[in-house]
Design a protein around this nucleic acid. Sequence first.
DNA 1: AGCTAAGCGGATGGGGTCGTCCATTTACGT
DNA 2: ACGTAAATGGACGACCCCATCCGCTTAGCT
Lengths: 211, 211
Amino acid sequence: MEPAQALRADARHNRVRILEAAREAFATRGLDVPMAAIARRAGIGVATLYRRFPSRESLITEVFGDELATCASVVDEALADPDPWRGFCSAIEKVCTMQVADRGFTDAFLTAFPDAIDYERTRVRAEQGFAEVTRRAKAAGRLRADFDLADLTLLLKANCGVATGTSEAAAAGSRRLVAYLLQSFRAEHAEPLPPAPPLTLDFLYGSATVR
Amino acid sequence: MEPAQALRADARHNRVRILEAAREAFATRGLDVPMAAIARRAGIGVATLYRRFPSRESLITEVFGDELATCASVVDEALADPDPWRGFCSAIEKVCTMQVADRGFTDAFLTAFPDAIDYERTRVRAEQGFAEVTRRAKAAGRLRADFDLADLTLLLKANCGVATGTSEAAAAGSRRLVAYLLQSFRAEHAEPLPPAPPLTLDFLYGSATVR
DNA sequence: AGCTAAGCGGATGGGGTCGTCCATTTACGT
DNA sequence: ACGTAAATGGACGACCCCATCCGCTTAGCT
């Protein structure tokens, strides 16, 4: 993942400064913050930034690799919870909180990364873990049987819509939305639903691609 | 609203072509489609566009005035329905469908218009009408008592998040989200919720302002 | 038909971002 | 201490978008 071995000491140092700056910048200004702004915040020149990360995408991938890993660990925690339903709920709540806190993270979920292998690998791992959480929660009779994995995407995208701005109000909105939806996800009193959207790429990512 | 009287015939003609082109462009490409693209689609020069609508905002206001009026009439239909709950549900379903069909409409809901009076007036009218729908649905014992008007905004914003792209999948997602939420809104089996977000401006509009 | 003001659209300047090039600086092995 | 290759950063050209200016065209009245 990191060919950062052969780098000279100063280059290695700058590399982490770039990543810190990018994380901050993405979090507060979203994914399309100018590259120059990131460079300035890191206290380096634009050229250095471009040499280290040839495309904006590679930078994003690197930055959100960590946060995606956090997602995966959230799923692992959910799997470790003896109560499948509680695990299910807290996993969703945690991820949604992360989304609200970080605007770039929100965007990253909506954006297609044609060739970010590591990224995609972790994502798939988290997804499969969550599928297992789902399976258990259904088996325990707490999660409605017609819950579809696409409903997770649905919830995340809905949460994205609520998470505009980083204000406290957005956080409150997100909490409430999640509470509403979790209530609907419960097996008790479940009523028929329209079919889940197919989990195609253009639903996952809208039609957005990073430039 | 329309000082289009004193215009020469050709100018009047071009004005409607601009509006048509703008409606299409906003619907398919979102609110920040280049002005030049609108002009080209309308088959006129940029200058003409700017003379007729000095700011992008004035154009948006004009274009979405109609659609907002449709919203208001949707609310009126809901008020006319003898069954308050059915009115409540169908109003929400209709507006959400509109949002999915028109990307610009979605954006318009998220964007602040500091001085679009007509626009704002209609919006307030629709909002008050919906408040009445809400009151009746609660009185009929169908809508949960702790439903807050901010929950409508919450739902609309959530729906915006789902409505990226104009694909059929987005429509299916929206329908399912709405079904989930309407189920949670029902009075029966309602459970405690975290507090509703305050209906402040920065929640309504994120921190977005049209440029 | 002819006049005039309204209307038109291309060209243009100003601002902003992207991504590269190259002269200069700096780390690090000897 | 010194030489070399790695690393740096500012300047630059290309592109895109906004919004205005100005010389030309045309509708509509008499």
